[in-house]
Design a binder for these strands. Structure first.
Length: 215
DNA sequence: ATAATGATTCGCT
DNA sequence: GCGAATCATTATG
């Protein structure tokens, strides 16, 4: 994997696109950086999932559901949607599309590139290992992302930003069913909206190699 | 006010 | 591979 990182923040136009599935693919290879009280950590996004309210049963905003939690998803693209899962795990999502259109991309795994020591400490590990950020809850902890950052905008003065970088070749993107959709009936459960970089050791789960970028 | 659920993780077998 | 941990969030009364 040769991924280039720039120091350019992704422009608002990246997030304001109306195709959240495409945004999820395009976020692969980008760099997420947090600055939490001066502690800088960065990682390359290697796995994502698309959630598309209102027609997606797997999405919190399915059927236009509006609650105190989900209202963040209705913000315009370029905001963070952070919520707590299983009562303890923070999940980092990027809101996309236009205001009122509840689409978001869950970041499921990153490859650490800056601030390894800080991440190891936050994860209470004694050394770097692939398990440090290979899951949505894990990477959020490693990056210091907490629920209090919910609804914050991803601009140059935000504690969370995403930097542009080289695009991943289509041939190097695999897709498959999203994780945790088993109970959802209908074809929503089978929509291959989980994306990951092929053969990347930092993804959360081994490949479910049924697809190669086609659906 | 109460009960059910979960876009997970970790430890143990 | 399996099950517990643990509580925010939601729906319902």
């Amino acid at each position: 994997m040769s991924i280039t990182k720039t120091n350019n923040i992704l422009p608002a136009s990246f997030y304001l696109r109306t195709d959240v599935v495409q945004c999820a693919k395009d976020l692969l290879g980008k760099t997420i950086r947090t600055n939490i009280e001066g502690q800088i950590t960065e990682g390359i996004i290697v796995e994502t999932e698309a959630y598309r309210g209102p027609d997606d049963r797997g999405c919190h905003a399915y059927n236009h559901r509006m609650t105190p939690r989900t209202k963040t998803m209705y913000l315009p693209g370029g905001h963070a949607y952070v919520y707590i899962c299983y009562g303890m795990h923070p999940m980092m999502n990027v809101v996309t599309s236009l205001e009122g259109d509840a689409h978001a991309v869950l970041i499921r795994a990153i490859k650490p590139i800056t601030g390894h020591d800080i991440m190891v400490q936050r994860r209470c590990m004694d050394k770097m290992s692939p398990t440090i950020t290979n899951g949505p809850g894990k990477l959020a902890i490693a990056l210091g992302i907490e629920k209090s950052l919910d609804a914050c905008e991803l601009n140059d003065s935000s504690p969370i930003i995403i930097l542009d970088g080289g695009e991943i070749q289509e041939d190097n993107i695999y897709c498959g069913p999203r994780v945790g959709m088993t109970k959802h009936v209908g074809d929503c459960a089978h929509r291959p909206w989980r994306f990951y970089i092929k053969d990347n050791p930092w993804v959360s789960k081994p490949l479910v190699v049924d697809y190669t970028g086609k659906w």
